[in-house]
């Protein structure tokens, strides 16, 4: 079994179990039809609706791997969405809208990264600043109202589709694959993990941890920019008050459900993306099942609790044992003989 599959196996199993559970309440859950040149079905909705959290989770995974956290991504989403809506209304065209949004996201990341890496402020405090102030900045751009636009090009990023697949889905899959390739095909992944586990030792080994930290927060801002673009394009308007509200918490949850430690170190972007899909499956599943809305949060909390307990360090070894049994244990024998010699 390839290592990647093995790493995300708990998340895949969780997702499969959740889908089975939702199917009990909503039998047509797995049905996908092709109509009007686009794929339609609850699963497609999940892949599309989960885009903002999935995008945020990509950047959040990297930040958390450095033993940081980025609470500002929701507010950054609002800023970037506002920038894109403003730019399109001001006639800068599609390229301008995307460009301004991405620049705003990178700037937000640079701000966070500088506070963390240069001034040494704890990440949770450093990013809290932008989390609180960011929405104000976004409101300043939209002048306090929902800044609507009518530009099919930009709206395409929210509601368009290519070969039947919704654009938001394509965006998060593409960005996820790109970032995963970037960190795994280069040495970035190793260096990020190293500073997350032991920043001091890594710095002594010659790693430029300051620049690397700033880059990671900028990556998070960049991902938040795309989440903001998708959210804004989706409703054809920038809602500074509500865009991305509390999504930073869902993004952190996605990373945690993806089995990544909040203490930094080893990370898997694929697992975080699956975590985001797990959260969205819960959200959409609740809506489809038709329970009264008073139950939404309770059901979500209960399911998240069950998932986290099953993945907890005290229960997870049971999964691992099953996986090891499949792999066989040639290493184990060698281990005992060599270590006995010490």
């Amino acid at each position: 079994m390839p290592r990647v599959i093995q790493r995300v196996l708990p998340q895949l199993l969780t997702l499969a179990a959740l889908m089975a559970l939702v199917s009990v309440f909503f039998p047509d859950f797995l049905e996908i039809t092709y109509s009007d040149g686009r794929l339609v079905g609850p699963v497609i909705d999940i892949l599309k609706r989960g885009a903002p959290v999935a995008l945020l989770a990509i950047g959040m995974t990297l930040v958390i791997a450095t033993r940081g956290i980025d609470l500002s991504v929701g507010a950054t989403m609002a800023i970037c969405g506002a920038c894109s809506a403003w730019a399109i209304s001001a006639g800068y065209g599609l390229a301008g809208a995307l460009g301004f949004a991405m620049l705003a996201g990178l700037a937000a990341g640079l701000w966070n990264g500088a506070l963390v890496a240069v001034f040494g402020i704890q990440p949770i405090v450093a990013t809290l600043i932008l989390m609180t102030a960011g929405r104000g900045v976004a409101q300043l751009i939209t002048e306090g109202r929902i800044l609507t636009f009518n530009h099919e090009g930009l709206a395409f990023f929210g509601s368009g589709d290519i070969l039947g697949v919704p654009m938001p889905t394509l965006i998060w899959v593409l960005l996820g694959v790109l970032v995963a390739l970037l960190v795994r095909r280069t040495a970035l992944g190793l260096l990020i993990e190293a500073i997350g586990i032991n920043r001091r030792a890594s710095t002594l080994a010659g790693i430029n941890s300051r620049v690397l930290l700033i880059a990671v927060y900028m990556a998070s801002g960049f991902c938040a920019a795309w989440a903001g673009i998708v959210a804004t394009a989706d409703i054809r308007g920038a809602d500074a008050n509500n865009s991305g509200l509390w999504l930073e918490l869902d993004a952190i949850l996605a990373v945690v459900i993806g089995g990544n430690s909040l203490l930094g170190g080893r990370f898997s972007i694929a697992a975080s993306l699956l975590g985001a899909m797990i959260i969205q499956t819960i959200d959409t599943g609740i809506l489809l099942a038709g329970f009264p809305s008073e139950f939404n949060l309770v059901i979500k909390a209960a399911l998240v609790l069950v998932i986290l307990v099953l993945q907890s360090p005290n229960l997870a070894p049971r999964f691992a044992r099953i996986a090891r049994r499949r792999r066989g244990t040639p290493a184990a024998g060698k281990l005992t003989t060599r270590e006995a010699g010490e």
């Binding site: 095909r185 280069t186 040495a187 970035l188 190793l190 260096l191 190293a194 890594s202 080994a205 010659g206 790693i207 430029n208 690397l212």
Partner: peptide
């Protein structure tokens, strides 16, 4: 073991 060597080569040139 590879860490310092990798740090010196830079992230873009993975070992």
């Amino acid at each position: 073991i590879a860490l310092a060597l990798q740090a010196r080569r830079g992230w873009a040139r993975p070992i």
